[in-house]
């Protein structure tokens, strides 16, 4: 049996697909489900452009098999905004010009959201180490780090 039927949840929606056993979750998302917001930069877990969460855990979707999503909950960039209501991080990235070409942006945003869920008040150093696996070649990281720190601050203020 070289393909498997998988029942999973993606961005809160029940999804079923049949995928080759050796297909990565990234390949399934992009090629089978047409969810191209998750990007491929290296295919070896070194760039973070394909970051998603599986059961709330931040992973590179190129290093997860499509079959492993069985019974789990996957979150991708497509589920980050609530319809046209952007997530605070998305808004802040726009406002602070924390993106240039934008290819790393979905992965960085997913990683940043995952950080702020675990640590709502990260230091600059904690942000930098958390997203060290998200390569960005355009920005030099400065505006990305600032946007994440500022999002964290505003989210804390809103929660207070």
């Amino acid at each position: 049996m070289s393909s498997t039927h998988v029942s999973t949840k993606i961005n809160g929606q029940a999804v079923e697909y049949v995928c080759p056993n050796d297909a990565s979750l990234l390949e399934v998302l992009r090629d089978q489900l047409g969810m191209t917001g998750t990007k491929e930069g290296c295919g070896s877990g070194d760039c973070g452009a394909c970051s998603v969460t599986v059961d709330g855990r931040l992973v590179c979707s190129c290093l997860v098999l499509g079959v492993e999503a069985q019974g789990r909950a996957v979150e991708t960039i497509e589920g980050m905004a609530n319809k046209n209501q952007l997530h605070k991080l998305q808004e802040k990235f726009l406002e602070k010009a924390a993106l240039q070409c934008g290819i790393c942006t979905p992965g960085v945003l997913i990683a940043a959201r995952s950080l702020l869920e675990k640590n709502p008040d990260p230091t600059e150093q904690e942000v930098r180490y958390w997203i060290a696996g998200n390569l960005c070649r355009c920005t030099g990281y400065d505006k990305i780090v600032r946007a994440i720190l500022e999002s964290a601050k505003e989210l804390r203020e809103e929660a207070a």
């Binding site: 877990g45 070194d46 931040l58 990683a111 997203i131 060290a132």
Partner: peptide
């Protein structure tokens, strides 16, 4: 070992 993402796995 690897990134935060790799740490998840």
């Amino acid at each position: 070992v690897g990134s935060t993402q790799v740490q998840g796995r």
